[in-house]
Computed example of a mutant assay.
Amino acid sequence: MCRWLAYSGEPLKPSTVVLDAQHSLVKQSLNSPLGAETVNGDGFGFGWYPSGPDAGTQPAIFHSTEPAWNDTNLRELTEAIESPLFFSHVRAAAGPPIQQTNCHPFRYENWLFMHNGALADFHKTKRELTFAIDPSLYPHVMGTTDSEVLFHLALTFGLMEDPIAAMTTAIRLVEKVGHDNGIAFPMQGTVAVADGTTIWAFRYSSQGRTRSLFHSVDIPTLREMYPDIDRLNIFGSRAQVVVSEPLNDLPGAFREVPESTVVVLDETGYRHEPFLAEESVPV
């Protein structure tokens, strides 16, 4: 499907993790060992919140239909800016066409959203799910992906007030409409949303076999584990990433997010909460 990365912490040049890490997101776009597809070359996107006094305001976004490894603008951009919170996503198209409006992350006001996975047999449920979007939000749906519909359903159900409750309601609707149309496992994926200060990362699928998701161990712990690795000094003590797969091979540097879990990442660190755990199918 896709691969994605979300960063939060001290302002950082995004190229540090998007381009320069051992298994950076761009390298994963060429070779993704844990992905459903090895190559993710159907466009990419990058969204970031400004640093300094404007932090937490509306993010900027950059989308391209070029493969991430072939776009010089991505390097120019990620080496020129610093951001305390940013998203990046490389796409393997599952059906909807390759066009900029179908590239993640998606934005609404101060919110960013990205997804790795799919709403199964979306052509069977697209009409009903799209019509469930609040009419005031419908004009903001610019592309044709199931992911953008899921984002606007979550907005419809109160994402800006309570992201976990809104995603719960949105996914329950996806599953109900899917089941009504004979789809056994309607929801698959990992989802990240952010408001400029907090990241919510969801791992859930109707089948209980969700795409991979990891988060980093805190930097002070990593420095204790690996005191001789100078590269860790690039990062501030609050630097954290949530990723589709680990950015390096250091044992203990990344922890897998359990099935049916939401990870909440803010300035205090991580916390895990069960998410629709009672509705997933045991492996």
Rank of each mutant, 00 (worst) to 15 (best):
G35Y: 00
I81R: 03
T38H: 10
N102G: 09
G45W: 04
W48T: 12
K126T: 13
L30W: 12
P53D: 11
L19V: 14
L77N: 03
F46P: 04
K13S: 09
L19P: 06
Y108Q: 02
S32V: 03
N31K: 14
P33M: 00
S15P: 10
L74V: 01
T65K: 12
A68I: 02
S24G: 01
R107P: 01
S51D: 10
T101W: 04
P14Q: 07
T38V: 14
Q100Y: 10
N116S: 11
E10L: 08
P67N: 13
A120L: 07
I98G: 12
Q58P: 01
I61G: 04
R107T: 04
A60I: 03
V90D: 07
T38N: 11
L112P: 04
Q28M: 04
A92F: 02
A120S: 15
K13G: 03
W111L: 02
L5C: 06
A55T: 11
T101L: 09
F122I: 05
A92C: 14
H123L: 12
H115E: 11
D42N: 14
G47N: 07
H63E: 04
K124Q: 13
G52P: 08
I61R: 08
I61W: 01
F131L: 15
W48P: 03
E76P: 01
P50Y: 03
I98T: 15
N40K: 02
P67V: 12
T65Y: 04
D54M: 13
G117D: 02
S8W: 08
D54P: 04
A55H: 13
S88E: 08
K124I: 07
T101Q: 15
H63A: 06
Y7A: 12
N70H: 13
K13Y: 11
D121L: 09
N40P: 03
A68H: 08
N102T: 13
H115L: 13
N110W: 00
W69K: 05
P53L: 14
L25N: 06
A60R: 12
T72G: 12
F87K: 07
L12P: 00
L5S: 07
P97R: 15
I133E: 07
H63D: 08
T16N: 02
W48H: 05
P84W: 09
Y7V: 10
G41S: 13
E37G: 13
S51I: 06
V90R: 06
K13P: 07
T130C: 10
L19T: 07
G43R: 06
A80Q: 07
P33G: 10
K124E: 01
P53Y: 00
